[in-house]
Write a protein that binds this DNA or RNA. Structure first.
Lengths: 295, 295
DNA sequence: GATGTCCATAACGAAACATTATCACCGGCA
DNA sequence: TGCCGGTGATAATGTTTCGTTATGGACATC
């Protein structure tokens, strides 16, 4: 069997109440139903989430790791409903643009300026997604176009067109006072002692770019410092002086003063690409490409 | 009835295939089952998601708005399973720290430096959450402490302690060449003509801080430019010169050179707070508070 | 108007899910 | 030691969900 939202709701309630009976009260159902839902959930996952322990319950390691994501899933389902309701109320006409991490901000600014000029008054929504989701949304018309970063152009289904906008050096961000910060260039092996902060988003935004991809391609083993959710936080941790980060060079424009960027000599440039669905017109794309010519 | 993951899977398949039969094939079930699931889903939501249109299907407005979130929900459930499995394999010992948007990066850097010193070698995970989720995770021990920003201290249940770290001016970020960019201070009414870029995350991270909160408290109606997912993108759009953004003043340290910050004179300072669960020790908190004394 | 495609509906069996009643376990306590 | 209150699990049972196959009806194309 598969997991269900019902099961997740039960698990979250039990985890928070530390008590099957109270969880059942909160959910407005009888206690055995909670027991059964949790058993079904554990069976589906093939793991024990809570330790039944005479007096109340205790989360297992797996349960503790599962819990925040279970909450995320429930919250996400609520958001889905709200989004649908908002659309029903006629809140529409938003232009959605996809974005994967690693796109240099100033490059995005150039594009957005162009879009805003082409469609004055439109409400814009820039949505960070995995490349696969961007393609799916382009295909179903939910998204107008997407900007993505990676070493090699993503393979996309025929109707989606890929245009290269830029190719720029990948760099390592270090604290200003770091011994390696004055170097002109660096190579990965020289960074073996560093601890890296990466964008986690729990693999939602897994990309061929960044540390994971580099490690996979070069065999370099990066030590981890922290996982964070966005570039701003990533740079904040580099600013602690305790961590490094791999980022496109031009991100240095948006970094705190005490963070230095050193190009990675042994890495191929990061290519920024524009994806759009050829079937759906996108008259702006001509302009977009004109202003954003490859470096 | 409630919505189910099964229903969401069916809807996504139908939306992507634009065809009930192919969707059924992909899901490995019979076509009527797909029809029924979709009917149940639509009944639960009380909205029409797809228009059955003789030849194939077409998404409604509501369906198009619902679709990306449905995908998010499914992805999130997959992540939950992966997180549980990772914990089963013994990948543990991570220190999780909560963060709500609006916390000045350098303030976070100070804290993280302290944490890293106190627990050398620990894997750190900085997780952006809503304040409610942070409290829930503090309560169940999944999170060690959380840093949050807002005008008023959050109301939290007794065992969770709140300590104020800083109070700093709220500012509006404008392009360097904007007529108002040279002012010493600004007030909200002076910004009535601006279009703002806000952090959306589709209200996951809805906060009393930021535009929504300010508007609610002052009656100011902000015009919208775009909704984005993180501060980096937000600043990139301010750099287009077409949009403003409301941010804590010290975020200017991390902004591109062509973005100027002007303090908002009619807004109370944004307070940064540290939340932790008193029952669970947290010996570091003494140090944290010592180094991060209120400004 | 015959035909094919597509989705909806009907009918029905199996699995899921809820209920109430009861059991088994454990900790405290006289 | 043996009883007790409180915990979660289990049993028995009815309802709903959810899948199946078979069939119907709408709407294109030719």
């Amino acid at each position: 069997m598969d997991i269900s939202l019902k099961g997740l709701r039960c698990f979250v309630a039990v985890a928070e109440e530390r008590h099957f009976g109270r969880a059942a009260d909160r959910l407005g159902i009888a206690q055995p139903a909670v027991s059964q839902q949790l058993q079904r959930l554990e069976a589906a996952l093939d793991m024990t989430l809570v330790r039944r322990d005479g007096r109340g319950v205790l989360l297992t390691e797996a349960g503790a790791a599962f819990l925040p994501h279970a909450r995320d899933t429930l919250e996400s389902s609520r958001l889905a409903i709200r989004a649908g309701e908002a659309a029903m109320r006629g809140e529409t006409g938003t232009v959605t643009i996809g974005l994967t991490p690693g796109v240099p901000p100033h490059r995005l600014a150039d594009l957005m300026r162009q879009v805003a000029v082409a469609r004055p008054g439109a409400r814009l929504r820039v949505r960070e997604t995995r490349i696969e989701d961007a393609c799916a949304q382009l295909a179903d018309g939910t998204m107008r176009f997407a900007v993505t970063s990676g070493f090699t152009p993503p393979s996309v289904s025929p109707p989606i067109e890929v245009a290269e906008l830029a190719a720029e050096p990948l760099a390592v961000a270090l604290h200003r006072d770091h011994p390696l910060a004055r170097r002109e260039t660096l190579t990965l092996p020289e960074l073996a002692a560093e601890r890296f902060t990466t964008i986690a988003r729990d693999a939602i935004r897994e990309q061929p770019f960044g540390l994971h991809g580099m490690c996979r391609r070069t065999g370099f083993r990066a030590r981890k410092f922290a996982e964070v959710d966005d570039v701003t936080t990533q740079l904040a941790l580099v600013a602690t002086g305790l961590s490094a980060a791999a980022l496109p060079l031009s991100m240095s424009r948006d970094a705190p003063a005490d963070v230095t960027f050193v190009p990675l000599a042994d890495q191929e440039p990061l290519r920024t690409m524009l994806l759009h669905d050829r079937r759906r017109g996108l008259p702006e794309v001509g302009d977009l490409l004109r202003i954003a010519t490859p470096v």
